Computed example of a mutant assay.
Amino acid sequence: MLRATPRRWRCFAAVALQLCLMLPSLPAQAASALAAWALTENGTLQLRTSRNARLQAFFQDASDGRGTRVWIDFPGEIRFPRRLSGRGAVKEIRLGKPRPGATRLVVEFRPGVELDPSQLKLRGTAPDRWELKFTGLPTRGLDDLGEGDLSGRATAWQPPGRFAPSRTPVDPSGLPTVTRGRYTIVIDPGHGGPDPGAVGIDGLRETDVVLDVSMQVAALLRARGVDVLLTRTGDVDVDLPPRVSLANRSSATAFISIHANALSMRRQDVNGIETFFFSDPRSGRLAGYLQQQIMDVSPGTPNRGVRRGRFFVIRRTVMPAALVEMGFVTGAIDAPRLARADHRRRLALALATGILNYLRQEVR
């Protein structure tokens, strides 16, 4: 369904559920309604948004040496504008703020790729789900690309540089058991994409360490019948509000944000493990289970304890939540351990054990 628009670009309809069309969009200064997106290997753009958000989709022919472009505008603002290199027929994907109070996702195709705008339709498939099939798009060389959690299942991840992710599958055989299918846990690997978090000794990046550990924790919990959602499954940036929104909308049993600490490179004497919670006593107990288990696999590093903190992701979540700092990437004791795959496996087992112990003893 096309309507008259300025020359060279067109707006095509976002065909949503009837409920979506009757409700207002988000306030202008709200966090972005875009919570997660993926461009699949078969040429389908999938989106998860705030419930009942209003979207607008646009098409522009190739011109001035630039390929055909399709973009979608969402209410609310992202924190970090960014660019991601595409695959196959897709040259680049960009996320930005075209105006105050808005988010724009642009898919730019390589020169020579032609699409028929009359065949493009952004469909609402649920109050928070959307789909756009790029009919006629060559799929050779396409690969899944995205940000945020659409399916709740981890995907392949290749970190940059010398960092080697853990390849040996973690063994869940010694973990505590819980009732299968009863619990949902959100695992939040901190940072990602243009925000690598702390960078420490020998260039060790927090984003790589925490994603590797988080994906192993997810695998271990799933082996025990726990449903797990990850706020990111690759080296991509996800704003803080979508991380919280994912947890709150999923009615999760608990939320665990995984980080690594840092200080000045001149203070390599500072090491240690600490776990934060906001105020809820249940969150305090969750943090205690996690802290105990991580200390058990980190001999010789200081126990910095369980502490109150006001971090956004544990302050805004409505379920028990904790933020774990697994050691200092700038610490002479912690950094060499965090750089080793075998120690990251031990950390993953410790975190999974702490979570399962919490579920067994605190959740009824």
Score class of each variant (00 low, 15 high):
251 S>I: 00
251 S>G: 14
251 S>Y: 11
252 A>Q: 10
253 T>Q: 08
253 T>E: 11
253 T>H: 07
254 A>L: 12
255 F>T: 08
255 F>D: 13
255 F>S: 08
256 I>Y: 02
256 I>H: 04
257 S>V: 01
258 I>T: 06
258 I>W: 03
258 I>Q: 09
258 I>E: 08
258 I>R: 00
258 I>V: 14
259 H>E: 05
259 H>R: 11
259 H>M: 06
259 H>P: 02
260 A>C: 13
260 A>W: 04
260 A>H: 03
260 A>V: 01
260 A>T: 11
261 N>V: 00
261 N>W: 04
261 N>K: 03
262 A>P: 06
263 L>V: 11
263 L>I: 03
264 S>Y: 13
265 M>A: 09
265 M>I: 07
265 M>Y: 06
265 M>D: 13
266 R>V: 05
266 R>C: 00
266 R>A: 14
266 R>I: 04
266 R>K: 14
266 R>G: 06
266 R>T: 13
267 R>D: 14
267 R>V: 00
267 R>M: 07
268 Q>R: 15
268 Q>F: 01
268 Q>S: 13
268 Q>T: 14
269 D>R: 02
269 D>F: 00
269 D>E: 15
269 D>I: 00
269 D>Y: 01
269 D>L: 01
270 V>Q: 14
270 V>F: 10
270 V>N: 05
270 V>E: 13
271 N>L: 02
271 N>M: 04
271 N>Y: 09
271 N>T: 05
272 G>K: 11
272 G>L: 07
272 G>F: 06
272 G>Q: 12
272 G>H: 11
272 G>W: 12
272 G>A: 11
273 I>H: 07
273 I>E: 10
273 I>T: 15
273 I>P: 01
274 E>S: 10
274 E>I: 00
274 E>L: 08
274 E>H: 14
275 T>S: 12
275 T>Q: 08
275 T>V: 14
276 F>Y: 15
276 F>M: 10
276 F>N: 04
277 F>N: 13
277 F>T: 10
277 F>S: 08
278 F>H: 15
278 F>A: 15
279 S>T: 12
279 S>H: 14
279 S>L: 10
280 D>L: 13
280 D>G: 05
280 D>F: 07
280 D>A: 15
280 D>I: 03
281 P>G: 12
281 P>W: 11
281 P>L: 09
281 P>T: 09
281 P>H: 12
281 P>Y: 11
282 R>F: 00
283 S>Q: 11
283 S>K: 10
283 S>T: 09
283 S>F: 11
283 S>I: 08
283 S>M: 08
284 G>A: 14
284 G>M: 12
284 G>P: 03
284 G>V: 01
284 G>L: 05
285 R>I: 05
286 L>G: 06
286 L>Y: 08
286 L>Q: 11
286 L>H: 08
287 A>K: 11
287 A>L: 05
288 G>P: 01
288 G>D: 13
288 G>V: 01
290 L>A: 03
290 L>E: 08
